[in-house]
């Protein structure tokens, strides 16, 4: 009796090491079960940091455009981000259309309403059937600053668009990057122009 109660750690696993023993099976099963339990227990501790239900419920916002005249722009919040809505002038539209795709640092439209590989033409950037409207997430794709160009008197860069004060990226009147360290065109959020005077974002 005393012998059996004096098994030391050195005697684990049992002497016949080549053949898996019942103890090996139990050890692996118990260890695996414990590992699975630990993983399941850990998941809520990590997942709680993801956007919660109250953040997700802010997913859509409707904006009234009645008072935005051509040449003006407004900024609204959507999911905690600034959304630039510009009522473009004919001159700005012409400038944007005149640029060959090959001249653009980023030839992709970055429009959430179009396929991922849609080219960055002005048609693919502006509102569907309402090309005077440009709806865009107003965050510089370099390091997340808010570019200038919304307010009257703001610097708009060399391309009648936006100018990021942080590191000098310049965007054209279709929100496409033309100069500077920004790697991508400013993103177009999912939205629909519900009517001539109303846009629903998200």
């Amino acid at each position: 009796m005393a012998d059996t109660t004096h098994i030391t750690p050195a005697q684990f696993p049992l002497p016949d090491e080549d053949e898996p023993s019942r103890r090996d099976v139990i050890m692996i099963a118990a260890g695996g079960f414990a590992a699975a339990g630990l993983g399941l227990g850990l998941w809520p501790l990590l997942d709680q940091m993801n956007p919660d239900q109250s953040a997700l419920s802010m997913a859509t916002t409707e904006v009234d455009l009645t008072h935005v005249e051509a040449g003006q722009a407004i900024t609204v919040m959507w999911r905690g981000k600034p959304i630039f809505i510009r009522h473009r002038t004919d001159k700005e539209i012409e400038e944007a259309k005149a640029v060959p795709i090959d001249d653009l640092p980023d030839p992709i439209a970055r429009n959430a309403n179009l396929p991922d590989d849609a080219p960055a033409t002005d048609e693919n950037r502006a509102g569907k059937d309402r090309e005077s409207w440009l709806v865009m997430i107003g965050i510089c794709t370099h390091l997340g600053c808010i570019p200038k160009g919304q307010a009257i008197g703001d610097p708009k860069g060399d391309y009648d668009g936006w100018f990021c004060p942080c590191h000098g990226s310049q965007y054209d009147s279709a929100g496409r990057v033309r100069k500077g360290p920004a790697p991508q065109n400013m993103a177009i959020p999912p939205y629909t122009l519900v009517s001539d005077t109303k846009v629903k974002i998200g």
């Binding site: 998941w43 809520p44 501790l45 997942d47 709680q48 993801n50 919660d52 239900q53 109250s54």
Partner: peptide, 13 residues
């Protein structure tokens, strides 16, 4: 209450 209703797994935590 926000933890209980909105936060992912908040009720459990």
């Amino acid at each position: 209450e926000h933890i209980m209703r909105d936060v992912n797994w908040g009720w459990l935590l």
